[in-house]
Design a protein around this nucleic acid. Structure first.
Length: 160
DNA sequence: GCCAACGTTGGC
DNA sequence: GCCAACGTTGGC
């Protein structure tokens, strides 16, 4: 797939972990609850079926990329936005004006070992990653092919 | 728990 | 449209 793009999705493992994704039916989940416009626009405008996803665990003892997944359904309305009991409820949203969208992702594989944020920061080849630069708070980030390859390569080799 | 970075809100 | 106040994220 020549124009395959790559992404990094953050999740707090206490709320939703890579294991949770692997345990879903078809290892597939709706990525709902994104409430940041930059992240939404990336999902809505650029994410395509087949795109690669690095699954990153944030707000945990050892923040790290822990697995890979891929997009199996492109952007569609996030119906949790107009569900008043949802923790993702947004009064601006409605079925006629969804405001927020989501994609579906399917787990591929746990990495041979996690690639930690510390290692990513220590690797000069990865100093352009948004994860370690501006946009640190972005829950969905674009990743280059080179960064994708580097992280998977780090995972296949031993810790530094 | 602290705090820096960043996004959002709302008064003007 | 500016910008201060406020809230959230997320590493440490």
């Amino acid at each position: 797939m020549a124009d395959r793009r790559y992404w990094l999705f953050k999740s707090e493992p206490g709320a939703y972990s890579f294991s949770d994704l692997q345990n879903e039916e078809d290892r597939t989940a709706e990525w709902d609850g994104v409430r940041n416009y930059r992240a939404r626009n990336l999902m809505r405008d650029q994410m395509k079926v087949g795109d690669g996803v690095l699954f990153y665990h944030s707000s945990t003892a050892v923040p790290a990329v822990v697995g890979t997944a891929h997009v199996v359904r492109e952007s569609y309305p996030d119906d949790t936005a107009w569900e008043p009991t949802s923790r993702y409820y947004d009064p601006k949203a409605s079925p006629d004006n969804p405001v927020w969208c989501m994609v579906d992702i399917q787990a591929d594989a746990e990495l041979p070992r996690p690639v930690t944020l510390r290692e990513i920061k220590d690797n000069p080849k990865l100093d352009g990653m948004l994860l370690v630069r501006r946009g640190m708070r972005l829950s969905i980030q674009p990743v280059t092919r080179e960064e994708w390859d580097e992280i998977l390569g780090m995972s296949r080799s031993g810790p530094l």
